[in-house]
Simulated assay, not measured.
Amino acid sequence: MEKRSLTIAGHRTSIALEPEFWAALYTVAAARDLPVSQLIAEIDQSRQTGNLSSAIRVAVLQHFRGEQ
């Protein structure tokens, strides 16, 4: 697990993801021409689960499945 701190929606938060998910998240952000922080903020706003790390994993999976 890699834990990183960033600011989303005006507040600092820490997110712990496996290195492979961080790499995939950066790939998704690049494909959408977004900074990673903005992509995470979008995921945060639209998530259906209470856990941001889980929502990020699902969003990455959906991207690579072609569901997003």
Rank of each mutant, 00 (worst) to 15 (best):
Y26D: 10
R47K: 15
A29W: 05
F64T: 13
V58D: 14
S53T: 11
Q48L: 04
T27K: 00
R57L: 11
S37P: 03
S37T: 04
T7E: 09
A29V: 06
Q68N: 10
P19V: 12
Q68Y: 01
I43D: 00
N51Y: 10
E20G: 03
L34I: 10
A31T: 09
T49N: 10
G50C: 15
R57M: 08
K3P: 04
H63T: 11
A24H: 15
I15Q: 06
L6P: 04
R47Y: 13
R65W: 12
R4E: 02
H63M: 02
V28H: 07
A23E: 06
Q38P: 02
W22R: 04
A23V: 00
D33M: 05
Q38D: 06
I56S: 04
L61N: 07
A23Y: 01
G66I: 03
S14I: 08
L61V: 12
V60F: 03
A41N: 10
R4G: 02
R57Y: 13
L6D: 05
D44Q: 04
V60A: 05
E67W: 13
M1G: 12
W22V: 03
G66K: 02
L34W: 12
N51S: 11
D44V: 05
I56W: 07
R4Q: 08
N51H: 00
A23G: 02
A55W: 13
A59H: 12
L61E: 02
F64S: 11
D33C: 05
S14A: 08
A59Y: 07
Q45V: 07
G66A: 07
A55L: 14
D44Y: 11
D44R: 09
R4N: 07
T27G: 01
T49R: 09
Y26H: 14
E2S: 09
I8C: 00
A9M: 15
S5Q: 06
A31G: 12
A30I: 10
L25E: 06
S5P: 06
G50N: 12
E67D: 12
A59N: 11
L6I: 08
H11K: 04
D33S: 00
S37M: 01
A16M: 12
M1E: 08
M1A: 08
R47G: 05
A30S: 09
F64M: 11
G66D: 03
D44P: 08
F21N: 12
G50K: 09
Q38A: 03
F64A: 13
R32K: 02
V58F: 05
A9H: 00
F21H: 10
A30F: 15
H11M: 03
S5L: 00
Q68M: 14
L34P: 15
P35V: 13
D33K: 13
R12A: 01
I56R: 02
A59I: 01
T27V: 09
R65N: 14
T27C: 09
A41S: 07
S53P: 09
R47A: 12
I15D: 09
Q62R: 08
Q68F: 14
E18Q: 13
Q48P: 03
V36F: 05
V28D: 11
R65D: 08
T27Y: 11
Q38R: 07
A41E: 06
I8Q: 00
Q48V: 03
L25W: 01
F21P: 09
Q68A: 01
D44L: 00
A16Q: 01
F21Q: 08
T27A: 11
R65K: 14
L52W: 05
Q62V: 14
G66P: 04
A24P: 14
A41L: 13
Q62H: 13
P35T: 02
E42K: 05
L61T: 07
